[in-house]
Amino acid sequence: MSTRRKEALDGYLFIAPWLIGFVFLVSGPMIASLVMSFLSWDLFSPPVWVGLDNFRALLSDRLVGISLWNTAFFTAISVPLNLVTALGAALLLNLRLRFRSVFRTAFYLPAVMPAAANAILWFWILNPEVGLANSVLRMVGLPELQWLQDPVTAKPSFILMNLWGIGNTMVIFLAGLQGIPQSLHDAAEVDGANWWHKFWAVTVPMLSPVILFNLVLGVIASFQIFTSAYLLAGNGGPEQSTLFSVLYLYRLGFEQFRMGYAAAYAWVIFVVILVFSLLQFRLSRSWVHYEGEDSR
């Protein structure tokens, strides 16, 4: 066997675990769900081919529109807020401070906590009667809120909870900040730039690929919000204000046993996420700067 073939064989052997996992755990189930979306199946009786009936039914399902609106509202506010907060935390933790490693650990710790533990913690924080949130409001003389029990404040409550887990985004921003050459900041400072000018003229352009990366991942993750919504508002209440897309998908498939209909809705969510991701990549051409690219 030639050296080239041996190297190719070694390469395939190394990627074999991932390739097997991709075929059996990703692409296989995706193809199965696509076929299932054209079926009427309740898990107990034989599946029946219904063609596009499931997709037509989605157009007239009021809860589909509500769940997509709730998810879009959550995404539109939560993602930018998380990006700004994570970037601000990364900028602070990139400074030469005492106990910097301790602060970094403290900011990152909520991101590695189990999702169920986070949900239980926020359940007690947002408890209208004995929760910490209303205790703080009482201390400063502000009116108490019902938080998860009020349709007006339910979605903002989940946005607040999501802000708790900015650790992963912050670490990626921090890595991007440390990859910016100090010579660029020094050159800008020699030209008379202050902190704000250096931030907008040097930091943001050099960090733009990282911002795009976190933006795309943030949008994808926001459309997949499930654990906290299921544990804290399993029925989508109050008044369906927390019925997010994946929560409704779960209810269709594993509570109502409408597996074909649920598979069709899953593909609708997939297409929505795909369109948003492609749109972000398309728009990024006007504001994302890659080091070494031709600026003409």
Results as ranks from 00 to 15, higher is better:
S2V: 03
A8V: 11
A8P: 11
L9G: 05
D10L: 15
G11V: 02
W18A: 14
I20R: 00
L25V: 15
L25D: 05
V26K: 06
S27W: 15
P29C: 09
V35S: 13
F38E: 04
F38I: 09
S40F: 08
P47H: 06
V48K: 13
V50N: 00
G51P: 03
G51W: 07
N54V: 04
A57M: 14
V64Y: 06
P80T: 03
L83T: 02
V102A: 15
A106H: 09
F107T: 04
Y108F: 15
A116F: 11
N118L: 14
W122H: 06
W124H: 09
E129V: 15
L132H: 09
W147L: 02
W147T: 04
L148N: 06
K155F: 07
F158L: 10
G167W: 01
I172M: 13
A175N: 01
L184N: 00
A188I: 02
D191K: 06
A193Y: 07
H197N: 13
V202K: 04
T203Q: 01
T203N: 01
T203R: 00
M206D: 08
L207A: 07
L212V: 05
L212C: 09
L217A: 12
G218D: 07
A221L: 07
S222K: 01
L231Y: 03
L231S: 07
L231P: 00
N235S: 14
N235H: 09
N235Q: 15
L249K: 08
Y250H: 12
Y250S: 07
L252Y: 09
G253A: 13
G253W: 02
Q256V: 12
M259E: 05
G260P: 00
A264I: 05
V271M: 14
V272P: 04
V272R: 01
L283R: 13
E291Y: 14
